[in-house]
Each structure stands twice: as C-alpha cells, then as structure tokens.
Design a protein around this nucleic acid. Sequence first.
DNA 1: GATGCGATTCACT
DNA 2: GTGAATCGCATCG
Length: 209
Amino acid sequence: MLLDAPAEAVPDTARALLGVEVAANGVRIRLTEVEAYLGGGRDPASHADRGSTPRNGVMFGPPGFAYVYFVYGAHYCLNVVCGQEGDAAAVLLRAGEVVEGAELARQRRPTARTDWDLARGPANLVRSLAIGPEANGTSMVSGRGPLQLLPPSRPVDVGDVASGPRVGVAAAQDLPWRFWIAGDPTVSAYRRHVPRRRNKPGRPGPPAR
DNA sequence: GATGCGATTCACT
DNA sequence: GTGAATCGCATCG
C-alpha cells in the first residue's frame, strides 16, 4: 500500500485508503470515511504539528503503525501512520461498514440502532474492533499485531469519492482533507467545529437571548 | 504547578 | 438541536 508516500501527500494516501479493510478481534470493517493529518508545522489541526511528544510520538515513526489516542475523557480514535519515518503524517479512520463479525460488533455496540451505526464515527469504529490504548504503536501491516490492514475486497469508484473540511477541527477549515464515499449510509454526519463555551466561575456568561 | 480545551458520543428537549 | 461527561497534553505564570 502507499502508506510510505511522502508525508505531504497524505491527503492522497487518505483517499486511497477508502475501501481498504481493517480487521481486529474477529471484526472486519471496510473504510468509508477518513481524514488526513500532517505534522511538522504544516497542519495546525494535527496533533503532530508542534513536534514529537510522548503522546503523538508514533506519528513520527515508520508508516503502517497504529496511532491510538484518547479524547474527550471517554473515547479512543484510531489513525494509520503515513509518510516516511521522521516526517509525521497520519490518516484518522472515521467510519466504515462492518463486512465480517457483525454479531460481535453488535455486542460491543449495544446502542447502535442499525448495522450502519456499528462503525459510524471514529470512536464507534474503535469500539467495534474492541481495541484500545494497547494497540497504540503496533504494526497494522505485519500481521503480528492486534490490527490488520487488508486490500479492498470491492474497489471504490473514484467518481463516488467526495471531500470536504475535516469534522470538528477548529484550525485549517479551508483544507478539504476529509474523504468519504458519497451516499454511503455508514458515513458519519458532518458537524462543524463548535467553539467551547468558557464559562468562568463568578463571571456571567454571554447574554442570554 | 495550574488551567483550559479537544480529531466525540449519547441522552434528552 | 443542545449539553454533559471526562483524561491527558500543551501552554502559561
């Protein structure tokens, strides 16, 4: 796979990952929605924009490894590291269609109303695969880790690929680095970044209307 | 050393 | 459509 393409080309890599399948713990998911992130001061929205830290260090390692991070105090998200070693880039796996192990995925996602919801949204995708922080830094291409990337079993029609701004990111809203399969029912609903309200104690909030 | 906010989801109105 | 829950990292004093 083209995971080792130059980091700057990560949007192309993200697009190419649509249709690719991710397998873990008895569940296989066909990717329908991804987002590209670039490090090294070229993408303010990326965890790796301001250099390597203990949290994002995996992004600076070799391509094909999993970058799993914890967000909002409750959820995990899964990225595939891209680009050459030392030049950080990654693709966030946002959503997909469960093509194998739906029974297991339903047990792991009891609140899903339909099978389309099983891996709809980045944290839901992670829960369907039953992976967690222990998967951070493991290879997704060696076949020896908990996660495995597999070539598409069904090709994606290039005419069906749509792109737009990334979901929920405050910075770089002009970059169309989110890619998805148009019309696919497993693609998560777009939500623009909502500024957090900073309610200082002792000070009145914004005037109610 | 303290503080603020985020690549989200779910329940409720 | 909107708000709460909740942990770690980066930033600032």
